[in-house]
Amino acid sequence: MYEKINSEILEAKEQLRKKERIDGLLQHAIEQLDSEKHREAELKEILDKEEMDVKKLEHLSVKGLILEVLGSKEERLDKEKREFMAAKLKYDECCNSIKLMEAEMKDYKAQLREVSNAEIDYEALIEKKQKLILESKDKYSNEILSLMEEAADLNSDITEIIEAINAGSTVLGSLESAKDSLSEAEGWGTLDIFGGGFISSSAKHSNIDEAVEYINAAMSNLNRFKRELKDVNLDINITIDIDSFDRFADLFFDNIFTDMSVQDKIESSLENVASSIDRVKEVMEKLRGDCDAKEIQLKNLKHKIKDIIEQARD
């Protein structure tokens, strides 16, 4: 039952390996070509300089006449010409190398077009044989079904972790913006304490208002983040707070004690936000680690299923 399709899978896998090998060669050629083009630009710069040095000596000038009288012009010209020729040989060799690499890449691309459907053909045959195995309910079917269920669970876990990571990124964006606004407010606040006046007070409170808006957004996003984390069996304990500020007393009355009080609140809120950022980043790092680990598990499971399908015999 499996003899014909096994033969087809073997042929498809050979084509797939050929495609992977050529693709690897192409990527290596692309890297080499980029490096050689960078080298070409450097050599062209050297060549242009050497050519300019030769032309300067060939054209008579006050300096050229002096050199000629001193009997050294021809020696200098000969030296510059040798350096020019050496630079030209290197440049020409590099240009020729680039042409060969481009021809090589063209050949690799042509070869890739011949096996462009190798992966699709292989996957289609594996799927076809998997269907045959599952329908036959033979000794391979139970093992494959069990592994498929495990793979489905892992895929679901990965989806949930990615959703949590996306939610965390949104929280981080709001917190970073709040941190920037509070940092600016802190700067204006320091100036305000030392007599910055109306402009510094206005700027400071404008930044505070921005920070409050960002923190309100972060609070909303944080609630979603916490919900997503529960889906992946993680929890996070973060509270974000920003003190209310007595804007009018600070803005219209020259009172250093009020200014200092507001400055203390800004600094306290800034520390709170910075701490929240660190905590979210810590959780995000764990999420990414879990996601990477599960993706490796899923990849290994899929390989295991394919191995069983490939090796299945009548």
Score class of each variant (00 low, 15 high):
residue 67 L to Y: 15
residue 179 K to C: 03
residue 287 L to P: 00
residue 106 K to Y: 01
residue 99 K to L: 14
residue 65 L to G: 12
residue 312 A to W: 08
residue 232 V to F: 01
residue 75 E to S: 14
residue 207 N to M: 13
residue 192 D to S: 07
residue 289 G to L: 00
residue 208 I to E: 01
residue 96 N to Q: 06
residue 178 A to G: 09
residue 289 G to I: 04
residue 97 S to R: 10
residue 160 E to N: 03
residue 170 T to D: 13
residue 245 F to I: 08
residue 297 Q to S: 08
residue 296 I to V: 10
residue 67 L to A: 14
residue 199 I to D: 00
residue 249 A to M: 00
residue 287 L to F: 04
residue 108 Y to Q: 01
residue 18 K to I: 00
residue 267 E to R: 09
residue 23 D to C: 06
residue 305 I to D: 07
residue 200 S to V: 01
residue 260 M to K: 10
residue 184 E to V: 06
residue 20 E to M: 05
residue 187 G to A: 09
residue 125 L to F: 02
residue 153 D to G: 13
residue 65 L to E: 10
residue 100 L to E: 10
residue 77 L to V: 05
residue 135 E to D: 12
residue 66 I to D: 15
residue 288 R to C: 02
residue 129 K to Y: 07
residue 12 A to S: 06
residue 301 L to R: 11
residue 159 T to W: 07
residue 238 I to G: 07
residue 274 A to I: 15
residue 24 G to T: 05
residue 202 S to W: 03
residue 142 N to M: 06
residue 77 L to R: 11
residue 258 T to F: 14
residue 37 K to F: 02
residue 77 L to D: 10
residue 172 L to Y: 00
residue 211 A to R: 00
residue 144 I to S: 03
residue 131 K to F: 13
residue 192 D to N: 09
residue 190 T to K: 15
residue 177 S to Y: 04
residue 79 K to H: 15
residue 273 V to I: 12
residue 68 E to R: 15
residue 32 Q to F: 04
residue 40 E to Y: 06
residue 100 L to K: 12
residue 94 C to V: 06
residue 122 Y to W: 03
residue 151 A to T: 08
residue 305 I to E: 04
residue 18 K to F: 01
residue 210 E to A: 14
residue 152 A to R: 15
residue 135 E to T: 06
residue 32 Q to T: 10
residue 312 A to H: 08
residue 93 E to S: 07
residue 91 Y to W: 14
residue 117 N to C: 05
residue 37 K to Q: 09
residue 239 T to C: 12
residue 275 S to W: 08
residue 222 L to W: 05
residue 174 S to E: 01
residue 60 L to K: 15
residue 59 H to G: 06
residue 96 N to S: 11
residue 38 H to F: 03
residue 160 E to Q: 06
residue 71 G to W: 09
residue 306 K to P: 03
residue 119 E to D: 03
residue 56 K to P: 05
residue 71 G to Q: 12
residue 131 K to G: 09
residue 289 G to C: 04
residue 183 S to W: 06
residue 86 A to W: 13
residue 296 I to Q: 05
residue 79 K to Q: 15
residue 235 D to N: 13
residue 65 L to P: 09
residue 152 A to L: 14
residue 212 V to W: 02
residue 244 S to T: 08
residue 292 D to S: 11
residue 160 E to I: 04
residue 158 I to T: 01
residue 76 R to I: 00
residue 310 E to T: 14
residue 223 N to M: 13
residue 296 I to N: 00
residue 94 C to I: 03
residue 243 D to M: 12
residue 55 K to L: 11
residue 262 V to M: 13
residue 223 N to Q: 14
residue 47 L to P: 07
residue 31 E to I: 11
residue 229 L to E: 05
residue 273 V to G: 01
residue 102 E to H: 08
residue 80 E to V: 02
residue 230 K to W: 10
residue 158 I to H: 00
residue 306 K to H: 15
residue 201 S to H: 04
residue 143 E to G: 04
residue 234 L to H: 01
residue 135 E to G: 01
residue 288 R to S: 07
residue 84 F to Y: 15
residue 113 R to A: 13
residue 221 N to W: 02
residue 235 D to S: 15
residue 233 N to I: 09
residue 98 I to R: 02
residue 244 S to C: 04
residue 36 E to T: 14
residue 14 E to V: 09
residue 75 E to W: 08
residue 46 I to Y: 04
residue 170 T to W: 05
residue 8 E to K: 03
residue 265 K to F: 03
residue 68 E to L: 15
residue 277 I to N: 09
residue 291 C to Y: 08
residue 305 I to P: 01
residue 214 Y to N: 13
residue 241 D to K: 13
residue 225 F to N: 02
residue 70 L to V: 14
